[in-house]
């Protein structure tokens, strides 16, 4: 039988104190669904970096997680300034982070790269002054 589970978490831009809250909750829910090991880990890392990205750069966003028997697909949609040059943003070490982000231990230009590294499928699209959409697929 094919089972599907789906949940969404809103993430507020600039809410640095709560950074990671949604991802910890997503990890807990996935664990409850019997997801473990490397798959759980990669999903949790990818959502964490994405959550930090929304908080750091966007106005607001949502993390949507859909679990099927075969895979986990994560959609991260934000409204915000968007990314002008995606290729540049993907490059390790490139960052536009401010002090607040760096104090938290982020903003070294590793985020998108880490997310891609955890994913079996990775798609990013962005519109300047509208927002960014990130689609991640992790095979179970």
């Amino acid at each position: 039988m094919n089972r599907k589970y789906e949940f969404s978490f809103p993430v507020e831009g600039k809410n640095f104190d709560d950074a990671g809250k949604a991802s910890v909750e997503i990890k807990r829910l996935l664990k409850e669904l019997g997801i473990a090991g490397d798959v759980l880990r990669r999903t949790a890392i990818a959502t964490y970096e994405s959550e930090v990205n929304i908080i750091s750069y966007a106005w607001k966003g949502t993390i949507n997680v859909r679990v099927t028997d075969n895979n986990i697909s994560i959609k991260i949609q934000d409204s915000g300034p968007g990314i002008t040059d995606i290729e540049q943003a993907m490059r390790q070490g490139y960052s536009t982070a401010d002090d607040r982000i760096r104090e938290m231990g982020f903003g070294a230009g590793m985020g998108l790269f880490n997310i891609k590294n955890c994913s079996d499928g990775f798609e990013i699209s962005s519109k300047v002054n509208k927002g960014t959409l990130l689609k991640i697929l992790i095979n179970r």
Binding site: G20, V24, K27, R41, A44, I45, M104, G105
Partner: peptide
């Protein structure tokens, strides 16, 4: 092992076990 002290370090520790 870190010099940071904010609550995010705990959430990260949870994520990576």
């Amino acid at each position: 092992i870190t010099g940071l002290t904010n609550p995010q370090i705990v959430r990260i520790a949870n994520i990576v076990d």
